[in-house]
């Protein structure tokens, strides 16, 4: 009886020490779950989720403070990916955070621009070039379409233009989409 108690106490002590050591030795810096979530987010940094950027939103999801359906630019695809990652049920996009829109980029009407630099300060990814009192322009390849530059513009010369897919970026519609196209009478199907 006593020996059994002794053995188990000793065992518990040894294992506890081992676990405690492992916890210190193999400690993971940062939050791996937040990293994984961040990788799935579209990185528009638009703040529509009510967090200041994609990373803070990812961290909030990881802490269980935010829901997975608060990212309008990511839309349904992102919600589905997040649901898969977190093992929860996918749900429709929360209406209070916005609606899913076609991908677009900012465009500055350079004739109207007064060079106030407000949009440059608003851009979260440094995709606007310009200097005080000089024309500004958007680097299309780096613009995420977050729309954060639109509101600060004092002369309303920034427009969001839909991104026109070039031939290289075109993708085949899925056969299910194609059935819809056939029903609406648009051509372009293959044999």
């Amino acid at each position: 009886m006593l020996s059994a108690l002794l053995v188990f106490t000793l065992l518990a002590l040894v294992l506890g020490l081992l676990l405690g050591y492992a916890g210190q030795a193999f400690k993971v810096e940062g939050d791996p779950l937040a990293d994984k979530i961040d990788a799935l987010l579209p990185q528009t940094q638009c703040g529509q989720c009510s967090y200041p950027g994609c990373r803070p939103y990812a961290e909030a999801i990881a802490r269980g403070e935010a829901d997975i359906n608060q990212c309008p630019p990511g839309g349904e695809a992102t919600i589905k990916a997040l649901a898969d990652l977190l093992g929860v049920e996918a749900k429709p996009l929360s209406a209070e955070h916005g609606v899913e829109k076609p991908k677009s980029v900012a465009w500055i009407d350079e004739q109207v621009c007064i060079g106030c630099t407000l949009c440059i300060q608003a851009c979260p990814v440094d995709a606007i070039l310009g200097a005080p009192k000089l024309m500004h322009t958007v680097i299309v390849d780096e613009c995420t379409g977050c729309e954060l530059c639109v509101a600060p513009c004092p002369v309303d010369c920034i427009y969001m233009l839909p991104l026109v897919p070039a031939l290289e970026q075109w993708r085949w519609p899925s056969p299910e989409e194609r059935l819809e196209i056939a029903e609406t009478g648009r051509v372009g199907e293959t044999l």
Partner: peptide, 17 residues
């Protein structure tokens, strides 16, 4: 893949900023 590349670039630029 293209979108992923683009979002990685955006993240990098955001973090750098």
């Amino acid at each position: 893949e293209r979108e992923h590349e683009k979002s990685s670039l955006a993240r990098e630029r955001f973090e750098f900023r």
